[in-house]
Amino acid sequence: MKNNLIYIYCLSDSSPELSRYAEFDGLKCDCFGGFFVIYKIVSEKDFSEESLKKNISDIAWLESNAREHIGVISRIMEHNTVIPFQFGTIYKSEEGLSNFIEKYSSSLTENINKVGGHEEWSVKIFCDRNVFKHQIEGLSKEVSALEIEIRRSSPGKAYLLERKKSELIETDIDRFTYIYSQNYYNLFLKHSELTQINNLLPKDQTGRKDDFILNAAFLVKKNSVFNFIQTADLLRKEKKLLGFDVIATGPWPPFSFISIKA
C-alpha cells in the first residue's frame, strides 16, 4: 500500500527549523496560504478511515501514536506558536488541506494571535475523603452541633445520631470540597488570561482512589508562568495535609483554547 495520506500535527505562522527535530521520522513542513503546516506522509494501511477505526481500538497502537502526536507538537511549540490538530486528522490530497486553510484563514490567524505568547497549563485537584473528613467537624456547624448532641444523648439515641452524622459528613465533604476547589481555581485564575473547566473523569478512568474535584486548563501569559507554577507548588505543599493533591502540568500545546470557525 502506498504512503499517500497527509497526517497533520499542527500549523504555525512561522517556519519551524525541522533539523531540530531529527528524533521524529518523516516530519515535513510546507507553506499553505501563509501558514506552515507540520505533517508526515502515512500509509492507508494505518490511517485510512477503516484502518484508523480499527487501530484506535488497539490501546498500545493508540498510546504510541497519541504520544508521538503530542510529542511532535510540544517540540515544535518550543520555538513556534502552534495550532494543534486533533489526533488522526488526515487529508487525502494537498488540495483538500489547501482548501481548508483558505476557508478558515482568518479564524486561524485569530487563534494564532490568541495563543501566541501564552502557554496552556493544566490543573487537576484530587481529594482524599478519608483525610478531608477530619476537617469537617471544624468546618460544618451542623456536624459539630450534632456531635455535642450525641455526647449528651442516651446510647440508643446517640447510635441513631451517629448514623445521621455519618450521612451529613458525606454530604458536607461534597459541599466543602466544591467550595475549596472553587477557591483554588480562583487563585490560578489570577495568573491566567483564559480558562476552561473540563469534565471530571470517573475513577475508572483516572485510575485513582481519591475524588477528582477540579479539572481545568488555563491559558497563561509566558511572563506569568512563574507565578502560576509558584501558586501550584504552594497549594500542593500547604493543602496536602487536608487531603488535597494539586497537580499542575504543562506547558501543553494549546489544545483547549483553539476554536476554528468559518
Binding site: 484508523l52 498510546e63 504520544r67 495550532i83 486533533q86 478558515y104 473523569l201 502540568t249 489544545f255
Partner: peptide, 24 residues
C-alpha cells in the same frame, strides 16, 4: 509519565477538530 488518559483527553477532542478528509 503523563497518563494516556490525560493525553487522549486533549488530542482526541480538542485542537482543530473535524477538518480532515479522515477524522476520528
Amino acid at each position: 509519565n503523563i497518563t494516556i488518559v490525560e493525553i487522549l483527553d486533549r488530542v482526541l477532542t480538542k485542537g482543530v477538530v473535524i477538518s480532515g478528509d479522515v477524522v476520528i
